[in-house]
Amino acid sequence: MAAKINLNDVTLRFGKFEALKDISLTLEAGKIHGLIGRNGAGKTTLLSLLAAFREPTQGHVEIDGEAVFENPEKMQQVGFIYEKNYADEYQKIPAMLEFPESYRPNYDKAYADYLLKRFNLPLDKPIYKLSKGMQSALNVVIGLASRTPITIFDEAYIGMDAPAREIFYQEILADQAKHPRTFILSTHLVSEMDYLFDNVVIIDHGRLLMNEDYETISAQGASITGAADQVDAFVSGMKLLNEQKLGGTKSVMVYGTLSEQRQLAARQQGLEIGPVSLQDLFIHLTEEAR
């Protein structure tokens, strides 16, 4: 139970400002997609189109081949979780959860109760009194327990402390193994979340920079670690993304694929080759596009 997403030539304008420019992409069903981009890149705007919060100025947004806007069947399949203002929310958590329970066909109450316990959320306090991190955790509970075939978390971790974020990531992976769905996780905490992604979408200034599976992306560069002088000699002439030095050892991130010959040569020199970090690649790509 997962759904495939298609965007065809999607452009969204607010007056003269183009928030999204001619984006075409396919997000495969049943995978965890990471949507990354800098502040103001258009991540939330893109996601709001998937959730039928608005219509694109041009182009089509489709789920399993059908337009999503005002499509009752498709809209019911999309759960869009984002940071909400709960300053006026006087309800308590159990009352709040009655709504998704009543309107989401796949909502799992037992799972919701389990998640509430895992996040240690108080059930007897009005929601406006909860901390920011707890309110975010509540959003996460709604998103996970609703089990919508497309579940979108738009920087849902805001305000959550590191242990709570860790629970969030673990639960995504655990539930994905049991009840596969299409997840979209937008974030700029790239280094913390990259291991979750099957597929990565990078947008910048409203344009699509990349939509590739994680392996393909990690092969677009490499990390080379070894004795500092040897590493320097090996990477000379390559595009460096990042370097770190500890004593005589150096680790360098380079952009560009390494041929098998080069990889072999590196190993013969005693250099260690690893995948490039998504974070470094992201920083490089979005700087280049500027």
């Binding site: 959730a51 019911q76 309107y103």
Partner: peptide
């Protein structure tokens, strides 16, 4: 906002 976020169409 609340209803549309939970997948209810504007028409419904």
């Amino acid at each position: 906002g609340y209803y549309v976020q939970h997948g209810i169409t504007r028409k419904d």
